[in-house]
Each structure stands twice: as C-alpha cells, then as structure tokens.
Amino acid sequence: MIVLSIEMSAVENDVALLHDGALLARRTWQAQTFHHTRLFEVLREVLAEAGVRPEQLELFAVGRGPGSFSGTRIALTAAQALAMPGGQPVIAVSSGAALAHEVASAGGVEKIAVIGDARRDTLWLGVFDGKTGASLQPTPWSTLPLTQLAGALPAGARIFSPDCARLLPHWPAGLPQPVARYPTAAAVAALALAVHASGSTPEPLLPIYLHPAVATPPKR
C-alpha cells in the first residue's frame, strides 16, 4: 500500500511517502509564517523522487495536533482534497500520540509525557505508556499552567516536547527539562495504518482544539 503522510503540527514539518512501510521519499522543513504552502512544492518533489503519480496514492495519513492551527488545517485540507477524486481513505491521528508511539517503539522509557505550548498561558499534556504508547489519561490531552506540570506528571515520566524553544525560557527550576522531539510523518503513518487495519472509529478530520475559538464569551 502506498501511503502519503503529512505532519505539520510543529515548527518542523514533515512529509513521507511510504510503500508497505518502506520509506520511498521524505522531506522535512521549517514552518514559516506567511509561507505555509511550501507543502505543495514538497508534495511534487517527493512524488517525483519516488516516481509515484498522485492517483496512485492509496491512503493518506495526517497529524491533527495538538499544535499549529494553520499547519494542521493545511495538512488536513490538502490530504482530503488529494484523496477526494479517487475516494481513498484519509486517516487523521494525534501528532502527539504519534510522537509517543515512536518513543515507545525505541524502548527504554517507563512513561512518556508529551507537552506543548497551548497558548493562553497553558500547556497541553499527554501521558503515554512507555511500552505500548497507549494513553494513560482519561482524555488524551489535558491543559494546565506550566507551574502545575510537576504535580501532574506521574513518577518515572520523561518529558518530550516539539515546543522546547518556546517553553524553556519559562521552565521551572528543579523540573527535568523536556527532550526536544518532533512528531514525524513516518510515525503518523504507522499510527494511521494501525487505525485503518483495526477498523476502529477514526478520529475526526479536524485539528485538535484545546480551547474554544474565542477567549472571551460574547457580551450579553
């Protein structure tokens, strides 16, 4: 099966083209405000490099965050539009969960905490089993202020984050610093394929929003 995977939730964007799990082509680039559409150049490059025509793509995997709204919107919209004429499946998975699964598959970590900047003075946090990569929280993502992170972390958890540049300047003394790590398109594809194969209910083809669209409710 030829899979195109798009991951744009963090500052490091990643696209991978895979055939039965083997990497055919990959591009990684830095997200740039106002130049979000580098994705479409990248798509042409990876297709050309692998000698694959767009209509030959059989499954589309997309990371839906948490993370950049613009990045995840572009990725989700592009994947659906690419799949539309041929009616191929589009599977969206959590980018943070993909990151945790990749860490888990390398082994050596008991519990994996994935955090990021949720804006509005909060973090997003997910905690995953170090062996299976399965979520250990009632809901996969919770939000909390950075000052409460130490209390929310289970014992033995190692912290990973795609947002280190933004978080470290405010990092509390005494708390182990997060390991800088980005979700990869290959990890997103692996998780999406597992969802596809299991036949379980896929996640919505929408970014993961951890706040309402408007910070202040309307005046009545």
Partner: peptide
C-alpha cells in the same frame, strides 16, 4: 489569512491531483 489558507490548500491539492 487563516481563512484564505483553507481554500488555498484545497485548491492546490486538487490541481496537483487532477494535473
């Protein structure tokens, strides 16, 4: 900007797919 991006993403992907 963020509204335009959605349409632009769909259009670019479709044009690429349909050549």
């Amino acid at each position: 900007a963020s509204a335009l991006l959605v349409g632009l993403s769909a259009a670019q992907a479709l044009a690429l797919r349909l050549a």
